[in-house]
């Protein structure tokens, strides 16, 4: 999934996967922090956003 998304031009890092048990609270915090940082670094999504149709 990730490979094909990136293959068609979605920036690497925009889609991320993890597997966290409900007992792994520290891992959860860690992953969320990392994902947030990397997505912030990428900036707003401009490609995979609908431009016509509903105008928000």
């Amino acid at each position: 999934m990730k490979n094909l998304m990136e293959h068609m031009g979605v920036e690497p890092g925009r889609l991320q996967f993890s597997w966290i048990s409900s007992a792994e609270s520290t891992k959860f915090v860690d992953v969320v922090t990392k994902v947030t940082e990397s997505v912030k670094a990428l900036g707003p999504n401009t490609n995979y956003v609908k431009k016509s149709g509903a105008k928000g």
Binding site: E6, H7, M8, G9, V10, E11, P12, N47
Partner: peptide
């Protein structure tokens, strides 16, 4: 590059 990939599929 990412943008070229996007444009290719567009």
């Amino acid at each position: 590059e990412t943008q070229d990939k996007w444009a290719f599929f567009e």
